[in-house]
Design a protein around this nucleic acid. Structure first.
Lengths: 194, 194
DNA sequence: CCACTAAAGCAAATAGTTTGCTTTTAGAGC
DNA sequence: GCTCTAAAAGCAAACTATTTGCTTTAGTGG
């Protein structure tokens, strides 16, 4: 018989058997990570396992390493929960969105999440993460297109605006300020089209 | 007598007592890391210690964690060993330098080094790493200035050319190709001035 | 040359990880 | 709905890595 495969979610962390238990345990473990992080506890696999009411070996067998688990937790939080606000002025929306994005990513939790995503051996989470960003930009661009405007390509926005912000967060001594971010947007809008 | 402080190197890894032994052991450990990596061995602290003829506790006390050690090893390799070649045409030099930089960073060893640098808790190594890049760019810019030309600011080059390359390496599904890199340079040179 | 101290060695204790085996449970076919 | 199957969880015993207290070594300054 052929595969029926009605996968409930296409979330990170492929679940070859999407029955209730797998999901329940995954949720418990993710919650445990969040709660321990919140509480400022040491994030170790045994600690997470205990807090989640699960055996360490369960975590090791599902995720392999702590880094992979933390990476999955991070992408989860990096998934945007809403489309960028729509003010009717897509340039302003772009600027606003980027300012918020930069602030969020430059914050300590934000930086930690990026670090966690990148620390995993598996590279997919990083791609997913940047795909989320691209999708947000696409939403803003689509609104511009709908109004007959011609916004820069998503790839251009990623290169000119997202990449510099992330680069500075990862490699810079000080975190990118709002003024700097606004400058990036102004530039890409300024020379992308008259 | 005042401090004589003939510090052999001002390398990363502050050495409060620059006597011969500290340096010898550091070198032995770094070499051990390189050799084990080369040999495809599992990179663990005990393995490195054994290979370096040193106790694990020495490594733990000096570096704290494997991640910190690997980070220090990585910056060491990321330090440029020579100034960018000088062809007399700084635009060509810039393009050539970036192409080589991108290729090096996008290679498996290159990616691993960036990962290692970013994985450390201490954030200084990442800054040092980007400072190296800035210095290389400065050399090229200085040549342009010496000829009365007006190259883009280093910060602009970092944002427009280095950041996108690194972003794509870290977050992208496929590695930035030479054509793409050349395009970035062309753009920044194209609209930075005339 | 001696005293002083930072750093290394050593080894025991602790903590984290892996693994073989057993048990549970979701899903498929009847 | 009931059984069968196999993926995934539990358990516990190795195993490996990390931490730590104490001792020893070796640069540095007197």
């Amino acid at each position: 018989m052929e595969q029926k495969q009605r996968v409930g979610e296409k979330s990170p962390q492929a679940m070859p058997r999407p029955g209730g238990r797998a999901a329940r345990i995954q949720a418990a473990v993710f919650k445990a990570v969040d709660e321990l992080k919140q509480a400022g506890e040491e994030l170790t696999v045994p600690a997470i396992a205990t807090h989640a009411g699960v055996t360490p070996s369960t975590i090791y067998r599902r995720w392999g390493t702590l880094a992979e688990l933390l990476s999955d937790v991070a992408v989860r939080h990096l998934r945007p929960d809403a489309a960028p606000p729509d003010s009717g002025d897509w340039r302003a929306d772009l600027k606003g969105w980027l300012e918020q994005y930069a602030e969020e990513m430059a914050s300590e939790p934000g930086r930690a999440m990026i670090r966690d995503v990148l620390a995993a051996d598996r590279t997919d989470n990083a791609c997913v993460c940047s795909a989320y960003t691209g999708q947000q930009l696409d939403v803003i661009r689509q609104r511009a297109l709908d109004r007959g405007d011609s916004p820069p390509d998503t790839a251009v926005l990623m290169d000119r605006v997202v990449a510099p912000v992330i680069y500075r967060i990862l490699f810079g001594r000080e975190t990118p300020a709002g003024e700097y971010v606004a400058g990036l947007v102004a530039e890409v809008l300024g020379d992308g089209e008259g």
